[in-house]
Write a protein that binds this DNA or RNA. Sequence first.
DNA 1: GGGGAGAGATGCCGC
DNA 2: GCGGCATTTCTCCCC
Lengths: 243, 243
Amino acid sequence: MELDIAAFNEALQKNAVVVIGCLCEIHYSGRAESFLGSGDRIIIIKADKTLLIHQPSGSNPINYMKEGTTYSIAKEKEKFILRCSNIPLKEYMDIFISKIYSFQQLQMEDTEKIQLVGSERDMSDMIYSQPGLIEPGFRPLSREEHTKYGFIDVFGYDKNNVLVVVECKRYAADFRAVEQLQRYVKKIKELRGIDKVRGIIAAPEISANALQMLHDLGFEYRKIAPPKYLERFGKDQKRLGEY
Amino acid sequence: MELDIAAFNEALQKNAVVVIGCLCEIHYSGRAESFLGSGDRIIIIKADKTLLIHQPSGSNPINYMKEGTTYSIAKEKEKFILRCSNIPLKEYMDIFISKIYSFQQLQMEDTEKIQLVGSERDMSDMIYSQPGLIEPGFRPLSREEHTKYGFIDVFGYDKNNVLVVVECKRYAADFRAVEQLQRYVKKIKELRGIDKVRGIIAAPEISANALQMLHDLGFEYRKIAPPKYLERFGKDQKRLGEY
DNA sequence: GGGGAGAGATGCCGC
DNA sequence: GCGGCATTTCTCCCC
């Protein structure tokens, strides 16, 4: 199959998305440098001039260029050379294409943004609205007071009016989560000039090492999972659960 | 355009890579949950049954499924429903396709692995072969001794036979890099039962906060950049630099 | 633009 | 499998 260079340039010009199936070799130079020998790949150039190169397996692109990259293609001795450059980022790529299997260009329209539930932020919102999940008598700070300490997930007083710092993790908490909590508790003690501040990790799981370190520091663990189920899923959600 | 369900199933069966341009709506449920309203997207199913869904802009897939996912497609009232499930991971996705713009299947062959230069590992290798980059008289530990402390990038003795722990960063070092170094120095002091261990951050840049914290802890900074330029690039490398 | 932290992070290598 | 950690991490938010 031949590649129509004029069609390629026109597609880029009108911000179409280009998808090329090809046999190619790739040289990259920028933050790092890489070389990838000849193999079959899918090349995607998006409307914002992001470039992605995918091998037949794996989640991540094997090579890529960021938004705003410029492209120039040329034919040289039966091969196509796609030169990619992102001058501000000092990133460059040369793609040596020896066979074209497919060429597609699509004018795509998509203004939708994803709605995601189950993030760490959703966890802290849940604890804010249900403080009893931490313990009876726990009272989170007001929104205004809390924003002054934006780096803390949940911040409040226990039933004895002792300050409590809560660090949420949506996955199994590790020792770095404990280090983070330790950093925040230290910071609050300094800022407020007080000696007694409690620290709590809220997460669905915690590693043995992290739990050990947590207890050594006099902190606590609460087994709490991030919320799920989009309200808007409605009956559709049931279908997803029926697999 | 119509989608040939038989062709789709056959492509999956023979581990071809499938690329579909379409208008679709996406429901996901697994580690988290998400909903994405109708818009134009590129759907890729790879040979290993990884699924990627890309919007017309941005580097990352807006939704995805991991390796080993199973697929079933059906037509319902002028729409196609692609149901995706990964039972072991408890991950599910429903893709409601209302228009097909393009359908491609490619039998891809690619056994090449990327060669990358400029990683943190390359930095520590460079320091091992040129210890003077740290300071005159620095002597890294032997390979055998070093592997016992695999978590440390570079480990050796200075000219006064004091132990030195070096943590490399390929980018600007931040306070987390300093915390990491602190953790390693502490661990080595415990393991060896000694009191004096030097700590050094080797990185091309370091943030002001990190440098302050580093000095407060009595550690040091060496401005060292990761190595670049693949030897095998040879003359090609020159071309990349000529942009 | 830098700093700080999350991510449905992923991927690699170790034990 | 989990743990620890790098990643051409990317992304978002906030100062």
